[in-house]
């Protein structure tokens, strides 16, 4: 149970960073923390105490292998996360070129 609580704390750390920081790179890092905590949660739900790798070979106890589906999901989610992070960071680079700043207080051309 303690690992789930730690995982949730990681989620909150990311949310806190996202909400309070003013540097757009730090906002992206906060967002990454949130996503990583979710990936961690996905891996944890497939885990069992003393589990083995989910490869069916002779002499392995089927009851003791971990659930492979969350691992497949996490791999997919990590790849998607990579794409969104690449997109975010490239936007951040373009923003820096236009505004000469990473400070969100200075990036305010949209109002209303």
């Amino acid at each position: 149970m303690i690992v789930f609580i730690l995982c949730f704390i990681l989620f909150l750390v990311g949310l806190f960073g996202l909400l309070t920081s003013r540097n757009i790179i730090k906002i992206i890092i906060g967002l990454s923390f949130m996503e990583f905590s979710v990936y961690l949660f996905l891996v944890l739900i497939g885990y069992i105490e003393g589990g083995q790798a989910p490869i069916v070979v002779k002499g392995i106890d089927i009851q003791m292998i971990v659930d492979p589906l969350p691992q497949a999901m996490v791999l997919t989610a990590i790849v998607i996360g990579l794409a969104t992070k690449a997109m975010l960071l490239s936007t951040a680079i373009r923003i820096y070129k236009k505004f000469r700043s990473f400070d969100i207080r200075k990036i305010r051309s949209l109002k209303g």
Binding site: L31, T84, M87, T91, S109
Partner: peptide, 19 residues
Amino acid sequence: KEELEASFKYQVLGGMATA
């Protein structure tokens, strides 16, 4: 400027939604 700022906002909130 405007497009990039709008896209950044959209991406951060969209990223939260994804999580």
